[in-house]
Design a protein around this nucleic acid. Structure first.
Ligand SMILES: [Mn+2]
Ligand SMILES: [Mn+2]
Ligand SMILES: [Zn+2]
Ligand SMILES: [Zn+2]
Lengths: 137, 137
DNA sequence: TCTAAACTTAGACTATGTCTAATGTATGAG
DNA sequence: CTCATACATTAGACATAGTCTAAGTTTAGA
């Protein structure tokens, strides 16, 4: 377990129970965009007694407190994103994997001038196939 | 019922049963981005005996034949879009309603130059609140 | 130590979508 | 026209994701 995880939770007004720290320890540090049940599977490895309800409750609590965002991008899965800054997403249509695209790699023009809509937020959703990166990963 | 719906289905290699024509008659002409169960509710008004399985089968068939697209935009609902041309989407966060944004109202720069990704398709997903349009609708 | 609030748990419940087995319908060969 | 066959439809079972509930456990303060 990473040290300091409890402090992060407290700083966001969350009581750091053992279960919550174990969940945070995984979900706040991954870029895998996991679903709730994937988080549950992962957390059970180090905390076998944790219940499904606690994982769902905790993830929803983290979203409410601004530690996570949830995204609806692929069929039948609500996924959680530890990157709470503005960014875009790329979905590999073969693997289903979701990749972050930093905000300034793309630029969207005229979005603030949409007539009849008050824009609160936007992102570009790109689909395709990720190229195999030589060597690494 | 609109005339000519059966011909549209046949042109796409689909046998125009009465159920399929009734489904097409609604879903190919709405801009409401309905879910499958919403299509079922609607079609039952004019075809009370239609089964849920037939509606799901038919919608999936229409997608396979290119008459519809399905979109994953909001939690727990796969919605169907009769607009199969490239376009963006606006989601009203209060009502959940989905609005089409024509392709050329927005412009995305640098999307083809993403390093390491083969882009097949993309869209901008905008969230916010739709302003009340004076008068109409 | 005692109490109350907060948290966790197992499992029931709901909603969306798929699958299956039986029944119904269209079609064309004879 | 008859009937065999393929295709379509149906009701309901099944699968999965997510929420809710009621009971038990932990925590922290008086
Ligand atoms: Mn951390
Ligand atoms: Mn038509
Ligand atoms: Zn992300
Ligand atoms: Zn659309």
């Amino acid at each position: 377990m990473r040290t300091g995880e409890a402090a992060v939770l407290e700083a966001h007004g969350i009581k750091p129970s053992a279960q919550r720290v174990a969940i945070a320890d995984y979900v706040l540090h991954t870029d895998e965009h996991p679903s709730a049940d994937e988080v549950w599977e992962r957390v059970k490895r180090v905390f076998p007694m944790v219940s499904r309800a606690t994982v769902y409750n905790t993830l929803n609590l983290f979203v409410a407190k601004g530690l996570l965002r949830h995204l609806v991008l692929t069929e039948g899965r609500l996924v959680f994103d530890s990157n709470v800054d503005k960014h875009h997403h790329f979905i590999d249509e073969e693997t289903g994997k979701i990749y972050d695209l930093p905000w300034d790699t793309l630029e969207v023009s005229r979005v603030e001038q949409l007539k009849g809509f008050d824009v609160r937020d936007y992102q570009v959703l790109v689909r395709g196939k990720k190229r195999r990166t030589r060597g690494a990963r």
